[in-house]
Each structure stands twice: as C-alpha cells, then as structure tokens.
Amino acid sequence: MNIRRLKDNISSRLMLAATVFACLLFFSMLIGLYIRARPILSLVPISDLLFSSVWGPSDGKFGFLPFIMGTLWVTGLATIIAVPISLLSSIYLSEYAGNSLRNAVKPLIDLLAGIPSVVYGLWGVLAVVPFIKNTLAPALGVETIGGYGVLAGGIVLSIMVFPIIISVTGEVLRSVTQDMREVSLSLGATKRQTIKHVVLRKARPGIFAAIVLGFSRAFGETMAVLMVVGNVPKVPASVFDPAYPLPALIANTFGEMMSIPLYDSAILLAALMLLIVVLIFNILARMVLIKIEKGVI
C-alpha cells in the first residue's frame, strides 16, 4: 500500500517539475536574450536602433529600420493575401460544405500545416520567383532582381498561414450556436445574411484572434522567407523590391557575427524583438480565444 502511495507521490512531483520547467522555459528565453542584447542597448540609444536605416556592423552602425520594415512589408502582404482567402474558405467549410467534403479537406489542411518551411521556400524559388520574373514583372513593366522580393515572400508566407487561420476560424464558427442561426433564418434572412449579420458578428473577436495568430506565425517565419525575399538591407518601396526581414537577418549572420564587436549583441536583440512582438500578439489572441471558450463573448 505504502509503495503505491509513494509511487503516486514521486510521479506527481516529477510531473510538477516538468510543468514548472515548461513555464520557466519561456521566461529563461526572454531573460537570456535580454542579457545578451544588453551591451548594445546600453551603448546605442533605442531610437537609433529602431529608426536608423544605416546598417554597417563593422563601423558600429546598427540601424534596424530596414529589417523591421522588411518584416512588416512581407508579413503585411502575406496577411492581406491570406485573410480573405482563408476566411472565405473557412466559412464555406463550416456553413455550406457537406460532411464528406469537410472530412476530405481537413486532412489536407493539416498536411498543408505540416509541410516544412524549407520545402515551401524551395517551392517559392522554383515556382513563385520565376513566375514573377518571367510573367508578372514584364507584364506590369517593373524591374525586379530576378523575381526575388517582398511579393515572392508574401505569396509563400500567405500559403503557410492558410492552415492556421482556417482551423482557428473554423473552431470559432463552430462555437456559434445553431439556435442563433435558426432564429435569423426564421425571420426570412437568407443564408448569407444570417452568416453576415449573425454568425460573423458573433464570431468577430475570434476571427480577429485567428488573424493575429496567423500574422504572428508569419512574423517569425524564417527559412521560406529567407530563400525568396532577396535579402537586401534597404527599406522596400514597393512589393517588387527586395527586403531583408529580421528572422532572415538572424539566420544569415549567425556564422560571421563573432568577429565584429557588438554584432552578436545586435543579432540577439533582433531575436529578442521577434520574441516580444510574438509574445504580445499571442497573449492578445489567446485572451480573446479563452473568453470565447468560457462563453463570455
């Protein structure tokens, strides 16, 4: 009897330890990156770091503006492409499609979520970049550097965030009760009016959360973007310009950064920036989703 109690006790403590570890992991990442980024934060004013566009690590110039703007351009474009397509697909799947279609599509959406980012990047290099270079850019009469740039990055990223927005929106739409739909339909509203005025109004906060989650996924995506975006540290002026987002900067410069003073600190500051932005977005989205789950909204 005592042995069984003892086993129960010990195992419970081990599980508690694992749980505490998971909680501490995030905080140690935050603190660890902050400690490593402190040297540059104490030497260069934060306004220079964020708003200067001069990037010359060997001269001690660390202006992150081109990278921040690059990230915003690519992520923003991806969100603009992905949101309408994902929302419309998700509404169709949950409100119109029959069970057999829904069951057939779901594994495919999961598969889309499971494809590694280098594979998406390779697809971007093989399909999207040549399309922009040979078809789109000549048709519009714009110059690109071989098709690489914000547009290619935005297209590849948008496909990578489809599954996130579709599945979270799907869950949110399912949480809208059937009664509410029926009340609206019984008043003579068409199906689309019901969806627009009842279902979507009720689901609005949740859809917002889905978009924020998709955006934050796109924000930190590294390899696929790195492979198609051109990597030129200049603030882009149009979608056909190359960009150099923060994650790509981290991935590209890790090897060489040890030889230049403050370089490593600057790169880890970039990682810290990513972590903080993603943290804010995630907390925002999760708070909304938790409220929906509890039925407050």
Partner: peptide, 8 residues
C-alpha cells in the same frame, strides 16, 4: 506562447 515562438 512557446507554440507561437518562432523557431529561429
């Protein structure tokens, strides 16, 4: 939050 943290 960890789930949303970028792999880089």
């Amino acid at each position: 939050i960890l789930w949303g943290t970028p792999s880089i």
